[in-house]
Design a binder for these strands. Sequence first.
RNA 1: GGGCGGAUAGCUCAGUUGGGAGAGCACAGCCCUUACAAGGCUGGGGUCACAGGUUCGAGCCCUGUUCCGCCUACCA
Length: 888
Amino acid sequence: MLDKRYNPKDIEKKWYDFWLEKGYFKAEAKSDKPSYCIVIPPPNVTGSLHIGHALDITLQDVLIRWKRMSGYNTLWLPGTDHAGIATQNVVEKALQSQGEDRHRLGREKFIERVWEWKKLYGGTIINQLKSMGASCDWSRERFTLDEGLSKAVREVFVRLYEEGLIYRGDYIINWCPRCHTALSDLEVEHEDVKGKLWYIKYKFTHKAGYITVATTRPETYLGDTAVAVNPEDRRYKDIIGKTVKLPVLNREVPVIADEFVDSSFGTGAVKVTPAHDPNDFEIARRHNLPFIKIMTGDGKMTEEAGPYRGQDRFVCRKNVLNDLEDLGHLEKVTDHDLAIGHCYRCKTVIEPYLSKQWFVKIKPLAEEAVKAVRDGNVKIIPTGWENSYFDWMENIKDWCISRQIWWGHRIPVWYCKSCDEIIVSMETPSACKCGSSNLAQDEDVLDTWFSSALWPFSTLGWPEDTDELKTFYPTSVLITGFDILFFWVARMIMMGLKLMNKQPFDHVYIHALIRDAEGMKMSKSKGNVVDPLKMTDAYGTDAFRFTLAAYAAQGRDIKFNEKRVEGYGHFLNKIWNVARFISMNMKEGDRVLSLEELRSGDVSGRLNLAERWILSRLSDICSDVNKALEEYRFNDAAGILYQFMWHELCDWYVEMIKPELYGDNADAKMVALSALVHVFEAALSLLHPVMPFITEEIWQQLPAKKDVESLCVRKYPDADTGIYDKDAEDKMSVIMNVVEGIRSIRGELNIQPSLELKVLIKTLDSVEDVLKPNISYVMKLARVQEIQIGSDIKLPKNSATAIKPSMEIYVPLAGLIDVDVEINRLKKDFAKTEKDLVFINKKLMNEDFRSKAPKAVIDENQTKCNEYKDKLQGIQDSIDKLKKWGKE
RNA sequence: GGGCGGAUAGCUCAGUUGGGAGAGCACAGCCCUUACAAGGCUGGGGUCACAGGUUCGAGCCCUGUUCCGCCUACCA
């Protein structure tokens, strides 16, 4: 017997260990079964589970468990990402608190320290995934710095280099002065700020007067090597080719003409700082201007900055402005909105910085990746994201992949110190072709996302030709948030196509971002983060998972509200209790008929309407749930199951069969119980992918015979699990109408629930034929003591009336209620129905409607119209009679 | 600057090809009916942001407006 209450804590670990022990999560490298594979978006190895992971994990686990139960050879491949900058930052901070410093430690020692850190904390997030119930194949867990994956990285680098798709050069890149590394364009977060535009006067050298330039970064004027104007700009025609003098430094720079300059902005004259601005860099290349670096990698001013050398860039700005002001070189200052780039890891203001870096020539890769989506080889769901994808891909710029940090895949390039030869190689070379062995490896490591881009095939063993690759590549679907669509998804598609000649996955399901209940982005600094572990602690993992699935409607952010988890906790309790109910009414060893027996000739005739109906409904929802999952409508799947389990199975079916269960007709009891067990087991199976723990616990405890060892590997129900039976559903809706009609009278007229009523139903013979054999349901569910049915029933004196399609239900209430109350109730219903009738009549009278609308729609409206008319007539009769009796 | 999404019951949201709007929670009334008060039954509650248009018919399609949110971008 189950405990009175469901206690998640006790059972979750038990079952997870059981599943692991049985090896259910293990994929077969070769199999006759169709394969289904998801690679996990690898969380940062130093991270801990946040609610976004929880959603991601839940959806993936739902799909994997569903497919596993549906007979697929499923592989959910887990792992973690070394997260170069983030991890290095974390370890550096830890070192700092111990009074250490990575530079003092040296590269090798430092990396050892990071590995130690990884050993200590790398398991945290993996254990948290397990606590969420994730059915990953842990025997295949990968880490981006594993030997195999590192080999893949080198292989890709060498291949792309040899094809000319990877190159090295001096360009302006995004530099984080805090992390001391280059970043790709994507790793810069732009924030809109209200800034200033400073107007600086540069004096002419050939005559009196000056030209004014406008800038948002006045300190960079120290590195100016020109002033540019648009060649068409009449104002400046005469001074093109002349020179101006930079204030303080007194350096002379030329005025040049370049199309890039927009005459309508600012003064139409632009200061050109080639080493500190990407546009200026391009201008400088066109005009052969010198590049003057005025800043170091720390964001401090260099020798070139003259009197400002050694100053921090922001201090320098202040000083420069003061000096310009004092010298009369500051013409004016205006407000100006601009977007300032920040490092996505440490939020430091990014500096455009000239340096030698490695790049991936990305256009050729992007073109193929665009094609794959356009041709439908990769399907992005919801499709709305395709636009963003195309937009980004079509305007893509070369990808800076070198990082000046230590934690990551070291770039497989060696420089010969004797002859300047560059050696790019899989293996560490021992000597240059010039004979020298004086080689030095490139100091930099690769962008973390370079290795993540290979994840779908590097984890399956590439570049080796493995069975896993043959079986599982391309993978089935990738589940992730839109925030890494470009960072990761797009790059995986490019790399997959390039190196595997096939897309890495058939589908990409992009899920929403989770916000707090007010719609604000969750962040540690705002203090509004919801800790998933607190949710699972308070309500159980299953309630939390169900909530996330129920929230996961496509194309909308999730405003997470804990109340909803609480609500679904109630749902678990409901399921728990119906399980208890079954246990109470069933003994171990009681005979339970299988579906085959239930539908076989000698039993099916003994099925009551209740059984036929619930089996039919099961059939309906089985196909609905499978379809919803097929289309990634997780919220619909959850909603359908919630509705079915609670409101159809518990509220109706269980209540309908209580007389059989409590009665002494053993055969009837067996039939009812068999259907109940069958439907309940099917419902548990359907729910299992969403709430694996409670369903397993309940199912294991059911006194019914088990067909398999675990729900985990039980066949996922399909439409065949039930018996579709339209006749039963139609008949049941008649019964429900009667019951609801009577309950409605009880409820609205405040009749004691304990009072057993007498009821009369005036109806057609055909409906009578439905009601008569099933009248016991009505009597039980509506608490009716005596019932009369017929086409010639008359409204008894002082009765309440409920009108339903083809039925008038009378409940004599002499002495129980105030006649006026009932009249008012009827009048309300009358008014409502009348409104409906007027509307529908107007429609039906419309010639255009009659001639242009489809026949089915017209018929439907006509039927409704007749129903309304009948109903009004019935209500009016009742009102008239009540009034008449009132006067007597 | 460009692009995308959202606005539906008090709250959070569903609403598949256009055929008079649904759920959960919250609220109100009645019930401790032997699975469940974390429950049962009943009920109230909506000009589907605004203005036009297409259509016999619009929450849904088209145009415009307002207000939110997001992505993206080298106007110094």
